[in-house]
Write a protein that binds this DNA or RNA. Sequence first.
DNA 1: TTGCAAAAATGAACATTGTTCATTTAATTT
DNA 2: AAATTAAATGAACAATGTTCATTTTTGCAA
Lengths: 203, 203
Amino acid sequence: MIVVGKKAKEDLKVLILNSAKKLFVEKGIEQTTIRNISDAIGCSIGTVYVYFKDKNAIFHALHTQGFIQLSSEFKVLLHVSNPMERLRAMGKVYINFALKNRDMYDLMFNLKSPMEFLNDEKLQEWNEGKATFDVLRSTVNECLAAGYFAGHQLEPTAFMIWSMVHGMCSLEITNRSVGVNIQNPENIVTAAYEEFMKIMDKL
Amino acid sequence: MIVVGKKAKEDLKVLILNSAKKLFVEKGIEQTTIRNISDAIGCSIGTVYVYFKDKNAIFHALHTQGFIQLSSEFKVLLHVSNPMERLRAMGKVYINFALKNRDMYDLMFNLKSPMEFLNDEKLQEWNEGKATFDVLRSTVNECLAAGYFAGHQLEPTAFMIWSMVHGMCSLEITNRSVGVNIQNPENIVTAAYEEFMKIMDKL
DNA sequence: TTGCAAAAATGAACATTGTTCATTTAATTT
DNA sequence: AAATTAAATGAACAATGTTCATTTTTGCAA
């Protein structure tokens, strides 16, 4: 093979990412050090910097991986033809992803670290977020076309729905939902989403 | 004065907090160092540790200050007798606070740092958050008593409303609302909240 | 006023972190 | 086999949070 060198390079890059992801999910972003990562895969500190500009670049790559996973979990929604049903199902998929991948969700939607590339590289856009929001927007648009959400505007309504679901997940993940009294505290997100679906029924 | 010693001690504690707050708002939590804080008020590094256990304790104190401010801004709501109107106004006050004190809001509702005291000190509770949620809960409760939100449950509904408003502010503050297309991008939060109020009208 | 004990303040020193870069090692080509 | 290119290395650096033995200041009794 001629490109053994490049193949090895890609392999090591993947190894670094996998190692970083594992440590990150175990111990959080702050407690994951470059030395941890390099130790885990048996290479030197410097090698990590051959493949990634800095620590932030590693976590930006992980954040992108998260969006690939979320978008793949959205694929089941293609089988739901009714837009309103699809919208409901989308919320469930989203919530399920968030609560089963808490730190990854935090990285994707809360932490500032992976967004700093917006400042660094000239006006680069948050394509991952845009693509995900597009899925929601087009579904809401179909709902409007089907007569739901009468009197509501597309963009603000879609953003409102996203905010609602994101807010629940975010409060839960960042441990801010502790003051809410409910029989099964672990289900507060599900319970709140069901209230929201009741409301959507009326629109 | 007999308590000069203690008075001085309290003064310095306040100085540290004010200095920390100023630097924190200017440069963010990560970029605010203990040395920055001590330099700004002309004391030594060690002195800061006389008044605060660690950096986290400083930011937990700031986070508490934020809740005091928010709760004071809630006071105007006492003049609104109709619970539904009060609920709407509460959202506006909340959004206004969040967008005018972005880093403080982040500290209060997004960052993990100030919440770590929940692990440290035995089962201490997040009283600041609870008290704020209480204001919302009792307002929603009054709405229910007045016949609004028919068929909805108190706690999940209140949590849902909080999530909705928090989600908007959070996405905006953490720069995740960039993919939303709208004429005045800076008003996406206001526009989305107006859609939400339209929905509340129907309940 | 002086002496002394308690309180407050200090900053050198340490451990840990992200990051750099001159050097070494390995791989590929000539 | 030599030369050239690519990859990997880890010592060294700067910055940070934190500690603690020491110094300075304060409050008060003799």
